[in-house]
Simulated assay, not measured.
Amino acid sequence: MSTEKLSAMVSALPAVINENMIVKVIETIHKTFSRTRRTVGMKTCLEVLLQKHVQRLELNGLFFKMRLQGTINSTIRNIVCAQVTTMRNLMTLNMVSKCSDEILCVVSEKCPEVSDVNVSISDLVTDAGIKALANGCPKLENLGIYKCWNITTEGIAYVLKHSRNLKKLKCDQLGAVLINEFSTSKSTFKLIHFEQTQIC
C-alpha cells in the first residue's frame, strides 16, 4: 500500500486514536532498534502518522530513548518540520533531545493553539527558537528547556517577559535569570511552578 493511501486511512481516524498510535509506533520502533539497530520504516511511519488534526505530538520516546545517527535525526527533524506546518490545532509538542529552532519557528507561525512544549536536552534549540514561541504562541503555559545549553539567560528572560500566560517553566538557569534580569524590575509573572533540578 502506498504512503498516500496509508496517510488517507490514518487521517480518517479520530485525533486521539492517531495520537496514541504515534506513541505506540514509536515504542515498537524503539524495541526493534534495540534488537537490530535498524530504523527501517521510521520515515514512512512519521509521514503517515503526523496528521494535520493531531493535537498532542509526543515524540520524546523516539529521540530520548534511542541514539540515532545524525543523518537519521536530520531526516526525522525535516519530516516533523514539514508536517507541523499543517497542524493548526496542535496544543502539545514533546520533542525531548532533538528539537531545533527551525521546528519551533514553524510551530510559532503555524500552531497558534500550542500551550505545552518540552524540548529539553536539545542542542539545536537556542534563544531564537524560544523567542519565536513567546511571540507566536500566546497560549503557551508550560515550557520545558532543561539542558538546552545554547539558550542563554537573556532568552529565558525574554520568554518570561513576553509569554504572558506562562505558568510552568522547567529550565536550568531560572535563578540566574531572576537575579540578573529582574532584580530591579517591576515585571510580574503568572508562574505557579518551576523546576531546575531534573528532567521530566
Rank of each mutant, 00 (worst) to 15 (best):
K5W: 04
L6W: 06
A8F: 05
M9K: 14
M9L: 15
M9G: 11
S11D: 09
A12R: 12
A12C: 14
A12F: 10
L13N: 03
L13Y: 02
L13D: 04
P14E: 04
A15C: 13
I17A: 13
N20G: 08
M21W: 00
M21F: 02
M21I: 12
T28F: 12
H30V: 10
K31T: 13
F33C: 10
S34N: 15
R35Q: 13
T36N: 14
R37M: 15
T39D: 15
T44E: 09
C45R: 01
C45H: 13
E47P: 03
L50T: 03
Q51H: 14
K52A: 09
V54A: 06
V54P: 02
V54M: 11
Q55C: 03
Q55T: 09
L59D: 04
L62Y: 03
F64I: 12
F64P: 05
K65I: 09
K65W: 11
R67N: 04
R67W: 15
L68T: 07
N73P: 11
N73C: 01
T75Y: 01
I76M: 02
N78S: 15
V80S: 02
C81H: 08
V84E: 00
V84A: 03
T85N: 14
M87E: 01
M95K: 00
V96Y: 05
S97K: 10
K98F: 15
K98A: 06
S100V: 01
D101R: 15
E102K: 15
I103K: 01
I103S: 01
C105K: 14
V107D: 03
V107N: 05
S108M: 00
S108D: 09
E109L: 13
K110P: 02
C111P: 02
C111D: 02
P112Q: 07
E113D: 12
D116N: 14
V117H: 01
V117Y: 03
N118Q: 12
S120V: 09
S120W: 00
I121A: 00
S122N: 00
S122K: 01
L124H: 15
V125F: 13
V125S: 02
V125K: 04
T126S: 14
D127E: 04
A128I: 05
L133Q: 01
P138Y: 03
L140V: 09
L140A: 02
E141I: 06
L143N: 06
G144W: 08
G144F: 04
I145C: 07
Y146L: 11
W149C: 14
N150W: 03
T152C: 08
T153P: 05
T153Q: 08
G155V: 00
I156A: 07
I156L: 08
I156E: 02
V159S: 04
K161T: 12
S163Y: 03
R164V: 07
R164H: 11
L166I: 04
K167N: 11
Q173N: 10
L174I: 13
G175M: 12
L178I: 10
N180E: 15
E181N: 11
E181P: 06
F182W: 07
S183M: 10
K186I: 09
T188C: 09
T188R: 05
T188K: 13
F189M: 12
F189A: 12
I192A: 09
I192E: 13
I192H: 07
E195Q: 07
Q196G: 12
Q198D: 15
C200H: 14
